[in-house]
Simulated assay, not measured.
Amino acid sequence: MTDLAAAMTGEGCRAEPFGEDHRAMLIAACAEDRDIWAIYSSSFDPDHFDESIDALSANPRNHVLVLFDGDTLAGMASFLGIDPARQTLEIGATYYRPAMRGTGLNARVKDMMLERAFSCGFRRVEFRVDRRNERSQAACKKLGAVREGVLRADRITWTGHVRDTVLFAILKDEWPIAGAPAA
């Protein structure tokens, strides 16, 4: 069985497990759009990056990945809340540099990550999105994820905002989505 957290490649993209050698370049990438962090649960802007990435990485139920489009640093994403007993995990904490948005990279990365999760024996992959984040909700729908509902007042974000979370999921037997490229 493939290790969930191992490096992976997809269609013109790849992911590597986060390591200290990625820290400086990921801080710089996350600084390219400081305004976006207002709709994230945690901020990865330069003022908060170290604390946020360290907390995310320290949780043994998470695997943080650094994303590349070809050889260009594209951003980050993670497997979160990994629960082998329930065969469920979340793909989240995703950030793309502004130049990478709208290029089709997200679909290629998510295809790669979904293929890895399902090949590792997970039966359900969730996406949890701030209700205010319309771009991410649209991306989940485009992937073929089913909108399952809204978790009202689900969490308090780093800004103190009480967030409503829109829950999406894809089940193993729904993958690959008809018409979606296989990873």
Rank of each mutant, 00 (worst) to 15 (best):
T165I: 03
A28R: 12
T159N: 06
I39G: 00
G19H: 04
G104P: 00
A139Y: 10
G10E: 11
M76L: 13
M100P: 04
F44R: 10
F122M: 07
W158I: 03
A15I: 14
F127V: 07
D111R: 15
F44S: 01
R86I: 00
A24V: 05
P181L: 07
F122S: 01
K141M: 08
R124V: 05
D45H: 06
D45M: 02
G19Y: 01
S52H: 05
L151F: 13
G102Q: 03
E148G: 04
I91G: 01
M112E: 09
V66E: 11
L167C: 12
G92I: 12
F44Q: 05
Q137S: 13
Q137A: 15
D69I: 01
P176D: 03
A55W: 13
P60M: 04
R34L: 15
L171E: 13
V64I: 11
G75P: 00
A145K: 06
R116F: 04
E115Q: 14
A183N: 07
E51G: 14
D71C: 04
G102Y: 03
A182E: 12
I39D: 00
I170T: 12
G70R: 03
A145I: 07
A29T: 09
R128H: 11
N133Q: 08
Q137D: 00
D71V: 10
F118H: 07
V64C: 06
E115T: 06
Q137V: 01
A38Y: 09
R86E: 06
L171M: 14
N62K: 09
L67K: 08
T103Y: 05
L56F: 10
C140I: 04
V129Y: 01
G104L: 14
L105E: 02
Y96E: 06
P98H: 04
D35L: 08
E32V: 01
E90A: 15
R101L: 09
S42I: 01
E90M: 12
I177R: 15
I91S: 03
M25G: 00
R147C: 11
S119W: 02
D54G: 05
V125G: 05
S41D: 10
R128M: 07
S41M: 07
L73V: 05
H161M: 00
A153R: 15
E11T: 10
F44E: 01
E148A: 09
A169W: 00
V109R: 04
T2P: 15
I156K: 12
R124W: 02
A77C: 13
E174S: 02
I170F: 00
M25N: 08
G70Q: 05
E126D: 13
V125L: 03
R135A: 15
K141E: 11
I82N: 03
F168T: 02
L143I: 10
D111H: 14
R135D: 13
V150C: 13
F127P: 11
Q137M: 15
L56A: 08
V125M: 05
I170L: 14
H161S: 01
F168L: 02
I91H: 03
M25F: 03
T103V: 07
V64L: 04
L114P: 00
R128I: 06
D154W: 02
L26D: 02
G10W: 08
V129E: 09
M100C: 12
R131C: 00
A15V: 14
D83H: 12
S119Y: 01
D21R: 10
E174Q: 14
A178T: 11
S41G: 13
V162L: 14
L4Y: 09
Y95W: 11
L26G: 05
A182D: 09
T72G: 03
Y96L: 15
G92V: 10
K110E: 15
